[in-house]
């Protein structure tokens, strides 16, 4: 079984290797071609080292995210510093902060706007489970209810090193994925079409989904 390597942290010291190993086992079931797998490794090397994140922050964790980008922690060392403001160009969305009922459709829409392959990292208690505001009437208890989450970084807010650690976890996950084959795409086209986002503030003639209904 291939073990994704990360510089300076041995494989064994990472948390949650079990989930990763079960993922590898699942992905490797159908794969036989050696050439394809070598190509996959190369592509995954590229992908995992070039995770450009969307600048998305709603609250406290966003400030820590900025701190990760600043001089002391400098995520540029990993090649993550190209934060894109347009979801089209981003590879991952770091959900840093509370997602409320009003924000939920916006987050979903941002996620849908991103180009494949795309990843989601839930940063901090709020994004993982609603955290401190679990009992509130206006807070979504965990972003995994509306978008698939790849890595959870607990903390309130997690310290910058913890965020970097989370990003390395994501790198590990990217490194075991297959580019060739249909496992790649997180959502089928069909699913995307059925997604519940309906744009309401454009003329009806332009709104295909509404017309379908």
């Amino acid at each position: 079984m291939k073990k994704p390597a990360i510089k300076s942290i041995p494989y064994e010291e990472f948390k949650d290797n079990e989930t990763l190993e079960s993922l590898i086992a699942e992905l490797n079931k159908e794969r036989t071609n050696v050439l394809v797998s070598k190509l996959d490794d190369l592509i995954n090397w590229g992908r995992s080292n070039s995770l450009w994140s969307l600048t998305f922050a709603t609250s406290c964790c966003g400030i820590e995210f900025m701190a990760v980008g600043a001089a002391r922690y400098d995520f540029a060392r990993f090649g993550f510093e190209v934060t894109r403001n347009s979801p089209r160009q981003a590879d991952l969305i770091m959900v840093a902060g509370t997602i409320t009922h009003k924000m939920a459709p916006v987050l979903k829409r941002l996620y849908d706007q991103m180009a494949e392959p795309k990843y989601v990292v839930a940063v901090g208690g709020c994004a993982i489970s609603g955290g401190p505001f679990k009992g509130s009437y206006h807070v979504l208890n965990g972003v995994d209810k509306i978008i698939p989450v790849d890595v959870y970084i607990p903390g309130c807010p997690p310290r910058p090193e913890a965020m970097l650690y989370g990003m390395m976890q994501l790198q590990r996950k990217v490194k075991v994925e297959n580019f060739f084959g249909d496992k790649n795409r997180k959502h089928s086209r069909k699913e995307m079409q059925d997604s519940p986002i309906i744009v309401t503030n454009v003329p009806d003639s332009l709104n295909e989904k509404k017309n379908q209904q």
Partner: peptide, 15 residues
């Protein structure tokens, strides 16, 4: 670093 970016960019979906 930049080579990794290029690899990624080449296989990224064009919407």
């Amino acid at each position: 670093q930049v080579f990794a970016d290029v690899f990624k960019m080449l296989i990224k979906e064009i919407i």
